[in-house]
């Protein structure tokens, strides 16, 4: 009888361990997709704010958002014609991003930047630097890089930058309590 109980307890312990391993961590997972200035500002404010709250942050940059991570001072070598074209048409870094609404040929964007300065809202560049200091992890979709024709050597020097696939994002998201797609 006692042997049976012992076996039962062992099974329960095992199940409890499994459940505990499945529990989401104090972590936020953000997909940065849009590459619009306003939306990337929101994403970086949330990311840095989360670090202030001691929450781990995993960002997954894919499609248009990867352009935010380009360094205008750098360029990639050995690109084919299409990649060069794409590289030319896509924004070269965070300073070149535009508003998703009311851009008005760039007038809206520069008006917003002026307002942000006046009201002392951190710029996107400042937020990226702060995110780096606070340990926000930025994972870049390798496939998007390939598709857009971006090379690793043309990306910004960011302390926690990795090149990953969708599986890494899913594993991070699986462990996160908060999920955002921006």
């Amino acid at each position: 009888m006692s042997l049976e109980i012992e076996k039962h307890v062992q099974e329960l312990q095992q199940k409890l361990n499994q459940l505990q391993n499945r529990q989401a961590k104090d972590q936020i997972s953000i997909i940065a997709f849009s590459g619009d200035l306003d939306k990337m500002l929101a994403a970086m404010i949330i990311a840095t704010g989360a670090r202030a709250m001691d929450t781990e942050v995993k960002m997954f940059f894919t499609f248009w958002a990867t352009a935010m991570l380009r360094d205008p001072q750098k360029s990639g070598k050995g690109k084919d014609f299409m990649s060069k074209m794409f590289g030319f048409m896509m924004p070269r870094g965070s300073k070149k991003l535009k508003l998703s609404k009311m851009n008005m040929c760039g007038m809206g964007t520069s008006m917003l930047k002026g307002l942000m300065k006046k009201k002392r809202v951190a710029s996107l560049e400042e937020l990226i630097a702060t995110a780096g200091e606070l340990g926000v992890e930025i994972n870049v979709c390798e496939m998007s890089m390939d598709l857009m024709g971006f090379k690793r050597e043309e990306m910004i020097d960011y302390p926690h930058l990795n090149y990953v696939g969708v599986g890494s994002y899913l594993a991070d998201a699986d462990e996160s309590r908060i999920q955002l797609f921006i």
Binding site: I45, G49, R51, M53, V121, L134
Partner: peptide
């Protein structure tokens, strides 16, 4: 003072 969100929170942290 003078900084906007998330400035004060980051400063506090």
């Amino acid at each position: 003072r003078g900084t906007a969100c998330p400035g004060p929170l980051l400063a506090a942290k």
